[in-house]
Structures are given as structure tokens and as C-alpha cells.
Nucleic acid binder design. Structure first.
Length: 693
DNA sequence: GCATCGCTAAACATAC
DNA sequence: AGTATGTTTAGCGATG
């Protein structure tokens, strides 16, 4: 966190300077002084317009500008998070203060990283966009301030005019300048809106659907930046004297502000370092700040549990006063803090974006499920989010289960986090825990790639437990791999990559994976000189059988090992000679194996017809040949030779299911001679083996 | 009520 | 010794 912040700070700091020199808006600062030296007057020609007409124009322009400002403020309020309570009490004219920096940290580091990883744009692009937005908003704020002053001046002028009955030429000129300035304000707002639209198009900003967009009014007369700056300078300098009397607003020195944009001057524009707005730095208002502290003494969103909650800080502050001191000293308005604000803004924006997307997705899901719930065969519980989301193939049911904290069954989906209409109530969303999905007892229905891919993005980002069993996920991971084989660590990585849920509680789910790999017959462990990897026997997976539990491990020598070797010479090469098969294969099975050996080897739908596959194939013969003699052709890979890649030296031993093993048909590698084979699972219900035990 | 399934936790073993 | 990997078992809750 600290490191990231440091990096961000550094990059932002340099980018700020680049932005200052490269931005069109900030270029105006430089040309401002040039324009001033030229002494040019604004390109506004009033001529001999009568006073009433000028005044009318002024009023109209003011009205338009005021509306625009209000609209923009509304837009910022809507697009930003809801203001905290204290901000609601702020005057309407004040710039809405975002709570981005004032909201307690609810984002986990993982989520933060996730968010940053999800960014569509490169950091450089984001940086540029943010700088542009920042510059625009800064300028807009300055314009707002200036606009207020101009408004006051106008009122003063109107009063004077009423008393004097005539308008001095000077006043007329000022009014003209104000009009031009207001038009320029519109232009600024257009620029900003374009920028916002640009952000929106790039997915960085969401605007509520019902929110009215700012009107894109064509400018009657445009002004080049130099003219604007000239105008600004002249107007501000012409009325400095008036404003100094009893005016609380400090006069805006844009020159100073612009020059110090990379290191903003607190004398010209005092920013509130405690609060960042959505792209705006609010004008410091001591009264407001003191009010805020009065209302919430010793309460600060950036302070909690004696620790400064400034992102990346976590400095320990014994009391609130020391925190304030720390805040003012360490997080004053500088490049670093500004950059951190930007990062936080980005985080908030991304969260809002993600939230909007997830809401939309949830809505679609609700709609979809609601429709489905009317179908005859739909699950009785309307809260069953699982069955129809992705695993439509599975003919299982689901039921709510209240498990608030500890994740349990991976077969269950989690409570939707976002609120939504329709059938899911708030209560149910919090009580619906993992819902067990149960496959048919007879066979496993493998999840298809589409099942996961359908909601891939969702599970990648949301810490929602996927409604698939570990076995299904492991299988999916293996089958997705190019070689149809994965090491344990690669399986881990696939889980963490594909599911945000599996980025925590690693010990739990990793153990579950190992257990499943060992427990399920369909997972075959193969060793080579580089280590071991896991493959999957899809047919076996569909059977969904487990290694029998609770049975003693037995050793059973196999007299027919030679015959097996005859079908797979690699056995001799890779297996230790002591490995043997314990039970005789009957002639029919052997013949069947001889005929179907190659398809059998590829049955497992894996790239490598390893020994594991061989064993799987044998198992297939033993267990399934009788029930479906032709079950292998579908998964055969004609282009692959069964002996294509052979490194196996170790294969998980598969006992036969008693109900399927007819007679003493057992295929067991032996223990005793190799540590790799010393955990031989045996077939239960074999009197011979029982006796050997 | 019972059997099964899926999961979790734990113990244990082995290899590195 | 510590860690990763693999195996096995017990127990729990959900489900049929």
C-alpha cells in the first residue's frame, strides 16, 4: 500500500508538471501574462447599444450561467457519492464536497488492486485524463468564484445606475466584459462536459441515466484563451479596489494560481486538504470546518482507532489533536496529497462504475430468474439464485443456508451484495448463504466452459462463491489448460485468477483442492522428472465417484501386470517393476482392452495419454465397459497418439467400486516397495484383501 | 431416520 | 526446520 502510494505519488507528481505545461487550459496561464502585456481589449464590440439592452443581456447571461452552474453542481452531486450529513448543511452555492477521502475505508486491498487491475486505460492515460479533469474543474471553480464577484459588482452597478440614472462608459465596458466572461464560462463548462463525456465513454465515469446532461450550447462568439485571460486580468484588476472593501472573497489571481498549479499557493486559493471533491478542491471555509468539528468532535473520516486513515499512511496518532496536527503537516496540500486524492478518486470512480455494472447485471439476473420462476419446473424458492444462473444443466436444487461469515460449500453462491428489486428481499440477501448444489447421485454433470465463462467477469471481481463443486472447478481448470494437465500450484493459480472468492482463506480452499484431488477418482496424478501434475478423466468425473473412504489400504499383487504392460510398454519404462496389479482381468475385458486400447487412452480427453490415462482407461474397462461398451469414442482425439508424451511414473491408484467390480477384479498398484505407492487404495468388499489386512 | 454428498479441518506422510 | 504436496479420516450440514 505504501509502496503503491509512493509510486503513484511519484508518477503523479511528475505528471502534474507535465500536465501543467502541456495542458491547453494551463497554457492559458502563460498566455495570460502575454495578453496582459499586449494590453489588448476583449474582442467584444458593444457599439452604441442602449443601456437597457445591455442590462438585459447581462441578466440573461447571468441567468444562463447560473443555471449552468446549478446543473453542473447537481451533476457532480449525483455522480459522486452521497454527501455526508454535514455537507448537507452547506450552502447551496458551495461546491459539493466529495466524500471520497472522507469515507471510511471499506475497500480491501485486494479490491483496490482489483480495481486498479481492471482499468481499461493505462495508468498514463488515466493520469492525463485526471489532470485534464482536474485542471478543468479547478478553472471552473475559479470561474465560479469570479462569477460570484461579478454578480455582486453588477448589482452594485445597477444600484448606482438607478441612483445616477446614467451609466458611465466605464461601467458599460465592464458589463460587456462580464458578458464575454460569462460566455467564456459557458465554454469552460462545455469543455468540462466534453471531458466528462470522454471519461464516460472510456468507462471511467458513469452518469445516471435520468440525469440531464449539460446543454451543449454553441457559443455565439468564441474567444481564444489569450482573450479570455486578457479579459480576466482587466476585469479583476479594474475592480480590485471595490472588492477590497468588506469583501470576504479574496481576489483571484489566476496568474499566481496557474503558475503554482503544480505547487498550489495557499495565498491565492486555499484548498481544503481534508476533503477532496470529485475532481475539485473545495474552497477552504474555516467556518465550515469548525462547524464540522463541532458537530463531530474528535470524529473524522480520516481518523479512526488512533490511526490516520489517509490512504497509505496509517500513522499512529494518539489523540485527535495530534491527528489534526499530523493531517496538516503530513497531508497538506502538495503534490503527494493531490496525487493520492486522485488515486482515491479513481478508486471511487471505479467502484461506482463497478457497482453500476453489477447492479445492471443483478437486475438482468433478477429479471431472468423471475421469468424462470414462473416456469413449471422452477425451483420453489424464489431466492434460489444458483440453479438457473449458470448451472442450468444441473438438476439439483438449492436452498438457503445461513452462513454469515465462514465460507463453506463451494457449491453455493453467495448473497448478492448489491441491492435490487424483485424477489430478493433485503433480509434474504443477508441471510441467504451458501447454497449447496448437489449433482445427481448417478453422475456428475460437468460444468461447461460456458457456465463459467458466462459469469467469468463476475466471479473474477466479486467475492462471490461460485456455485460449483471443487471437483468441477478443478476439472475445469485442468481442461482449460493447453496440455490438459496442471500442477497443483497451477490449479491454485487458476482458482485465484478466476474467482475473487478464492483470493482469501487460501488454506481452506487449497486444502479442499488437495482433498478433492485425492478423493475423486477422476483426478489422476502423474509424475515426471520435473514433478507431478494432475489430469482429469472426464468419464470418471461424470460418474462422480470417490475413492472409497474408510477402507483399509491393502496390498494386492496382480498376476496380470504383464498383460497390462503389453498394452503400454511405458509401464515398464516408468513404473517400478514392483508395481503389480492384484486381480486377474477376465478374458473378455482383456480382449476389450486390446481392441480399444488407443481410444481408451484418449478417453480422458487429455493431451497426454499418460499412465494415468492408461489406468483410467483400464478402470474404464473394468468399471464401465460392461455398462456402456462404446462410451469412449466421443472423447477420442484421433490426432493424438496415446504414446505421445509419456513421462508418468506415478499414478493414483483407483479402487473399483464394489457395485461395479464384478468378482475379484481389482486394479491396484502396490505399496511396500515405493514410497510413491505406499498408499494403495484397495477395493473394498474383497474378502481376499480383507484377509490380507 | 438413513445414506450420500460436498465441504472443512486435521493428522499424517513424503519430498524438497 | 519449514514448506509444499498428497493422503486419509472424522465430522458437519444439506439433500434425497
Amino acid at each position: 500500500m505504501m509502496q503503491e502510494s509512493g509510486t503513484e505519488t511519484k508518477s503523479n507528481g511528475s505528471a502534474i508538471q507535465n500536465g501543467s505545461s502541456g495542458s491547453n487550459h494551463l497554457l492559458e496561464c502563460g498566455s495570460l501574462r502575454e495578453g496582459r502585456s499586449n494590453g489588448e481589449t476583449p474582442a467584444v464590440d458593444i457599439g452604441a447599444a442602449d443601456l437597457a439592452h445591455v442590462q438585459q443581456q447581462q441578466q440573461q447571461a447571468l441567468q444562463v450561467a447560473r443555471q449552468l452552474l446549478l446543473q453542473q453542481q447537481q451533476q457532480q452531486q449525483v455522480s459522486g457519492l452521497k454527501s455526508p450529513k454535514r455537507n448537507d448543511k452547506q450552502p447551496a452555492l458551495q461546491v459539493p464536497v466529495s466524500v471520497a477521502m472522507m469515507t471510511p475505508q471499506v475497500i480491501t486491498p485486494q479490491q483496490m488492486q482489483q480495481i486498479l487491475q481492471q482499468q481499461v486505460l493505462s495508468p498514463q492515460q488515466l493520469q492525463v485524463l485526471l489532470q485534464q479533469q482536474q485542471a478543468l474543474m479547478l478553472q471552473q471553480q475559479q470561474l465560479q468564484e469570479f462569477y460570484k464577484k461579478q454578480q455582486e459588482q453588477l448589482q452594485l452597478q445597477l444600484l448606482q445606475q438607478q441612483h445616477a440614472g446614467k451609466q458611465p462608459k466605464e461601467q458599460q465596458q465592464v458589463a460587456t466584459q462580464q458578458l464575454a466572461f460569462q460566455q467564456q464560462l459557458l465554454q469552460m463548462q462545455q469543455l468540462q462536459q466534453q471531458h466528462l463525456l470522454s471519461l464516460q465513454r472510456q468507462g471511467l465515469l458513469t452518469i445516471q441515466p435520468g440525469q440531464p446532461a449539460l446543454p451543449l450550447q454553441p457559443l455565439a462568439q468564441g474567444m481564444i484563451p489569450t482573450e479570455l485571460q486578457q479579459l480576466w486580468k482587466e476585469v479583476t484588476s479594474a475592480h480590485t479596489a471595490e472588492e477590497t472593501t468588506g469583501n470576504n472573497h479574496s481576489s483571484l489571481d489566476l496568474t499566481t494560481t496557474c503558475v503554482s498549479s503544480s505547487a498550489p499557493s495557499k495565498t491565492s486559493l486555499i484548498m481544503n486538504p481534508h476533503a477532496s471533491t470529485n475532481g475539485q478542491l473545495s474552497v477552504h471555509t474555516p467556518k465550515r470546518e469548525s462547524l464540522s468539528h463541532e458537530e463531530h468532535p474528535h470524529s473524522h473520516p480520516l481518523y479512526g482507532h488512533g490511526v490516520c486513515k489517509w490512504p497509505g499512511c496509517e500513522a499512529v496518532c494518539e489523540d485527535f489533536q495530534s491527528f489534526l496536527k499530523h493531517l496538516n503537516s503530513e497531508h497538506a496540500l502538495d503534490d503527494r496529497s493531490t496525487a493520492q486524492c486522485r488515486v482515491q478518486m479513481q478508486v471511487v470512480q471505479q467502484l461506482e462504475l463497478q457497482l453500476a455494472k453489477d447492479k445492471e447485471r443483478l437486475q438482468a439476473m433478477m429479471t431472468h430468474l423471475h421469468v424462470k420462476s414462473t416456469e413449471p419446473k422452477a425451483a420453489p424458492q424464489p431466492l434460489n439464485l444458483v440453479s438457473s444462473v449458470t448451472l442450468s444443466k444441473s438438476a439439483s436444487e438449492a436452498s438457503p443456508q445461513s452462513l454469515p461469515h465462514t465460507p463453506t460449500t463451494p457449491t453455493a453462491p453467495l448473497t448478492p451484495v448489491t441491492q435490487g428489486p424483485s424477489v430478493i428481499t433485503t433480509t434474504s440477501m443477508h441471510t441467504v448463504g451458501p447454497i449447496r448444489r448437489r449433482y445427481s447421485d448417478k453422475y456428475n454433470v460437468p460444468i461447461s466452459s460456458a457456465d463459467i465463462a458466462q459469469n467469468q467477469e463476475f466471479y473474477k471481481n466479486a467475492e462471490v462463491r461460485p456455485p460449483f463443486t471443487y471437483a468441477s472447478l478443478i476439472r475445469q481448470a485442468i481442461l482449460e489448460s493447453p496440455e490438459k494437465q496442471l500442477t497443483l500450484n497451477e490449479i491454485y493459480n487458476w482458482f485465484t485468477r478466476m474467482f475473487a472468492y478464492f483470493r482469501r482463506n487460501a488454506a481452506t480452499w487449497k486444502g479442499a483442492i488437495r482433498t478433492n484431488l485425492s478423493l475423486h477418482k477422476c483426478f489422476i496424478r502423474v509424475e515426471d522428472e520435473f514433478g507431478s501434475f494432475w489430469t482429469v478423466d472426464d468419464e470418471e468425473f461424470k460418474r462422480g465417484r470417490h475413492i472409497q473412504r474408510g477402507r483399509p489400504r491393502k496390498y494386492c499383487p496382480d498376476e496380470n501386470f504383464d498383460e497390462l504392460v503389453a498394452h503400454n510398454p511405458s509401464l515398464i519404462k516408468n513404473m517400478q517393476s514392483s508395481h503389480a496389479y492384484c486381480t486377474p482381468l477376465n478374458a473378455a475385458l482383456q480382449a476389450s482392452m486390446a481392441e480399444n486400447s488407443i481410444p481408451l487412452y484418449t478417453t480422458a480427453s487429455m493431451g497426454n495419454p499418460t499412465l494415468g490415462n492408461l489406468a483410467s482407461a483400464i478402470r474404464e474397462e473394468l468399471n464401465g465397459a460392461m455398462e456402456h461398451t462404446n462410451s469412449n469414442e466421443s472423447d477420442s482425439s484421433p490426432g493424438r497418439s496415446p504414446m505421445q508424451a509419456v513421462h508418468p511414473v506415478h499414478v493414483k491408484e483407483e479402487p473399483l467400486d464394489p457395485e461395479e467390480a464384478e468378482g475379484p477384479l481389482s486394479l491396484v498398484t502396490t505399496a511396500n516397495h515405493s514410497p510413491d505407492f505406499d498408499h494403495d487404495r484397495d477395493y473394498e468388499d474383497e474378502p481376499v484383501n480383507e484377509d490380507m489386512e
